[in-house]
Amino acid sequence: MDKVRITGQVLDGAIREVGFVVRRDGHDVPAVLWRPEAARPAVVLLGHGGSGHKRIERHVRLARWFAARAGIACLAIDGPFHGDRSVDGDAPLDYQRRIAQVGARSVHQSMRDDSLAALAVADQLDWVDEQRVAFLGMSMGARYGLPVCSALGTRLKCAVLGKFGLTQSDDLPETLAANDMITHAAANIHAPVLQHVQWHDELFPHDGQFELFDLFASTEKVLRARPGDHALTRLDDEIAWREYVGANLESN
């Protein structure tokens, strides 16, 4: 097992929130898990967007719903240069410069392996069942989540991904992209996929999002398109995402 350190636990009704840090290959991976009372529940991996972190409001809101209403755990980690892994003094978008310095492909690989390491620890501690996994992530969460989904193989029961595609606007540095990894990952995802598209997305044009959708190997894939720009998320969007995850995890 990778070295793990519990950083805190909070019990709120039937939900236990556990903060922990996994030591992997010389660096720390800060993580948080929301657990229901059920033994070894299925788990949703949550991926945050750019400039976000593992405890963003959406993660907390979704995790509490999944744990309390569906008996499903949720697990999130901080991406490189985000949250507890951010560099002191950095502005919100400085992570982009740091990713360029390290190399996008390297960061994609690190995020994939960090996520799998945190999942493995949670399984080994009997907190979750790593054989029943879903993934939910938008924007950067989808970018880094695709290689995670591919690496999970048959353990992945479904994925909700969105606000991301194979083309991006000039507002995003080209140095963030690793499209060879993304296309390979998408072509190796056979689990059901719901892809959410913002029709007027100013960061990821919808044509590139459609191109990504075509690559998924799954025969059970759904494209959900809504009007609006990149940042817009409606309440019924979240409801659709969680219902899709719940239905697919329950059926496995």
Rank of each mutant, 00 (worst) to 15 (best):
V10N: 12
G26R: 12
D171N: 14
A120E: 07
V4M: 06
L235D: 13
G47C: 04
R24H: 06
E211W: 03
A142H: 08
I6W: 04
P227Y: 07
I56S: 14
Q124M: 12
V60T: 07
I182Y: 05
R35P: 13
D84E: 11
D12Y: 07
K54R: 14
A63T: 06
S150E: 11
R24A: 09
C74V: 00
T167S: 03
L119E: 04
A31V: 00
D229W: 11
R69Y: 08
V4Q: 09
L249E: 15
M138H: 06
H27E: 12
T154S: 15
A186E: 05
K157N: 06
S110W: 10
E250A: 15
A63I: 15
G145C: 04
A42C: 12
R224G: 13
L156H: 05
P205V: 00
R61H: 13
A187N: 13
L152S: 06
V197F: 08
D88P: 08
G145F: 10
K157C: 00
G153C: 12
R23L: 15
H184V: 04
T219F: 14
T233G: 08
D126C: 07
M111F: 07
R224N: 15
H184T: 13
R112M: 02
L166Y: 02
A68Q: 13
V160H: 10
P30Q: 01
G19R: 12
A67F: 12
S169C: 03
P227C: 13
F135Y: 14
V148I: 03
M138D: 10
P80M: 01
V60E: 04
N179Y: 04
L46V: 11
I182K: 06
S110Y: 05
G49N: 11
Q209I: 07
E174W: 14
P41M: 02
H59S: 07
R242A: 11
Y95P: 00
D171V: 01
Q101W: 08
F20P: 08
T7G: 01
F164I: 05
P227D: 01
E37A: 15
M138N: 08
S251L: 08
T219H: 09
V102H: 08
